[in-house]
Design a protein around this nucleic acid. Structure first.
Lengths: 263, 263
DNA sequence: TCCATCTCCTTACGCCATAAGCTATCGTTG
DNA sequence: CAACGATAGCTTATGGCGTAAGGAGATGGA
């Protein structure tokens, strides 16, 4: 299984991904007409993954949803790895590329990050797919291009920009992953996040009564909490993002000190 | 399988984790003496995971390494999820807690981040374990406490500090994950990272000849590359970290503008 | 000595991805 | 129109996985 797949045969995956719809071929094919299509399979697989988490995504569950046997899928898709590649890129088509740049790059990037986060929370399984060797599908590619578009006015050199882009993706992905995993754990275990933490705290008090002495700063970190758990998570994300943007601002100042911030 | 486990029974895991070595019990037990121990199993499991990647970690492979059958492990450990919890915490014991604070928090945090990154690259499977509902073992806890210790002199309020800590972990984890996944993919597929990218670029050129027109900024992002791939990755990490630290510095200024940076 | 207890084993179940080979369908060609 | 050959989707089988169930043998205390 290897949840962090994304390692289908590059050639196959990419051909399927960027597929111009098969110019020559088709039409003159003997044999029964295909009742399915790569498209339909990918769609069904996404539906399954959204609903059941990535662990519940199997060739069988996808095929069942389409009223076929699992082996039928192999006519259209070489294997599960390639299917994941296709799902991954396809789902990225949901993201928009027209963030308002009128109020400066800070606001625009914030909008981008917020949307991306919501996207990851809608499709948590996306975070389980490796992005080390990106599928390089058109839709995923567009997300990066869009972000770069929002950052042009910072005029950062490529080397700095690579660091910044990485940082942004890591923050959004990491923050989303925490939430996504929490939510999923809540479903799997049947315990709400709050209950879970309460239970864990109780056990901890029993098993490590000296916790507060050993980890005083950690305890202190819990001070001044947001009114609700959800708000706390949200706040942590936004605070981090804001700090990050401050960092970018500082970097623009380093890069072109004589321009200042004027454009 | 469910690679992103970390969801063993909280009580069980935590009891095992913080275990004072079983005060009452022991000694007076009939039956054969245990030939294994939780300790030995965890150690073996870590060795397997380090060597074989998390996908190669199964109860069978761990047991084999110890010359036992897989079911023998269940005498010591309730299941794989709990075993992962134990491995996760145990391996964090490798991290040090005496970063030099003499040259200010920037240097200290950089040292912390660098060490943590190296740690993740030594034990890539750690990144596959969910940190949404942390195991709350002593060694993992200590990592957070240590970081907080390095950040005290920033005097950031708890709310900001939560954002900053999150940001730092996300950056280190995210950056490490990319590298780790690359390395693993290199092993699994037998293609080096460089070859893989070359192959993918070739396919891309064939399948999407208009790439440069559609994604001009992405192309531009590749300008001015570091001399080697490894250096590029390293540089991206360090640049991001530096931007991030600039952001923290800015936050300290916001928080207590009249103090300035003096302490 | 006997027995309760404990370790470790074998066996089995229900998942998973997917290899192999069959059947039924259908466009094409004689 | 019949026969052919390509094709879609099926059944079956293989070798993995985590782990439930229950049996065999060892061992300390009664």
């Amino acid at each position: 299984m290897s949840v962090f797949a994304g390692q289908g045969d590059p050639t196959v995956s990419m051909t399927l991904l960027w597929a111009t719809p098969e110019p020559g071929r088709a039409r003159t094919a003997p044999g029964p007409k295909p009742a399915l299509s790569v498209e339909a399979i990918v769609e069904a697989a996404i539906a399954v993954a959204d609903a059941e988490t990535v662990a519940g995504l199997s060739m069988r569950t996808v095929a069942e949803r389409l009223g076929r046997s699992s082996m039928a899928l192999y006519t259209y898709v070489p294997g599960k790895a390639e299917l994941l590649d296709l799902m991954y890129d396809r789902v990225h088509a949901e993201l928009s590329h027209d963030h308002d740049r009128g109020e400066g790059w800070r606001a625009a990037v914030t909008s981008w990050a917020t949307e991306l986060r919501a996207f990851y929370l809608r499709h948590p399984w996306v975070l389980q797919v490796s992005h080390a060797r990106p599928v390089l599908g058109p839709h995923e590619q567009a997300v990066l291009e869009t972000l770069l578009g929002l950052l042009v006015e910072t005029r950062l050199p490529a080397r700095t920009l690579r660091g910044v882009v990485n940082l942004l993706f890591n923050h959004v992905r990491g923050s989303s992953q925490t939430v996504a995993e929490s939510q999923q754990a809540a479903v799997t275990t049947g315990t709400s996040d709050q209950d879970w933490w309460a239970a864990r705290a109780a056990v901890l008090a029993e098993v490590a009564p000296d916790f507060a002495e050993r980890f005083p700063r950690t305890v202190e970190l819990g001070r001044d909490p947001a009114p609700s758990w959800d708000q706390q998570v949200e706040e942590t994300f936004m605070t981090g993002l804001s700090v990050l943007l401050d960092g970018i601002e500082a970097a623009t100042a380093h890069a072109s000190p004589r321009d200042g911030k004027a454009d």
